[in-house]
Amino acid sequence: MENTDVYTRLNRIACQLRENVVRMIGVGKVGHLGGSVSLAEIVATLYFHKMTYDPKNPKHPDRDRFLLSKGHTCPIQYAALIEHGVIPREEIAGLKTLAGMLQGHPDMDYTPGMEAVTGSLGQGLSIACGMALGLRHEKRPSRVYVVMGDGEQAEGQIWEAAMSGARYGLDNLTAFVDRNRVQATGHTKDVFDIPAIEKKWAAFGWNVLEIDGHDVVAVCEAIDTARATKGVPTIIVANTVKGKGVSFAEDTAAFHNVALTQEQYDTALAEVIAAKESFS
């Protein structure tokens, strides 16, 4: 256990990231709310505690890399980079606008701090494997963190990458499954159930950890365990709640990618700000 102040701070940042996401999505504009906010604690813990990442030098070759294989939930990464000052705060108002920096999926041309182009699901883990392979070959200390969705586990390329990650013993690579149990058109168990995710990854040769993805203590400990694990890559299956922190959006596909009404926006903003203020 680390100092409880650390965890309070991370919880507060996670809520701040949720607030940024809600503000980004705004009123009457379609945005991926649910799968962004389910990642708030994981992204806060990585960007504000566990990753080697200097916001003043975001291209440092020895930095740790974070990428979203589930690229549609980039608002949560934008939220973190806004807090870091890598993305200007005023960009919050310009999500998915022609004049803005914040594209609908991660784009290295438009947006500072993006590590890869993702969005066509299934490709991010392979890209992360390539990064980890290259960084290890260069003997750099960097670690690579990549987040997949649980619905995304249906992509065949994920399992190609699972094999090659294990084949090359990429212990500088840590993957997450954001298991929020909801995909675009419904609950994963109803749409396309993928049972025994942990057993599958273990059978593919990965070190598998299962945590509560909203418990920053558990997130910290899992990242430490992954870092200490040698010879194999680690996957952290994080049980999360889609829409976490926005009561009407929790555990429903209805807010996978949808516009908020003014009333919904006001409610969402009030809830995430209240949650943030509870951590002080």
């Binding site: 991010g124 392979s126 890209i127 390539g130 290259g134 990458a161």
Partner: peptide, 9 residues
């Protein structure tokens, strides 16, 4: 995609 990752580093 792995080649992409290698190029990115």
């Amino acid at each position: 995609s792995t080649a992409a990752g290698l190029a990115l580093v």
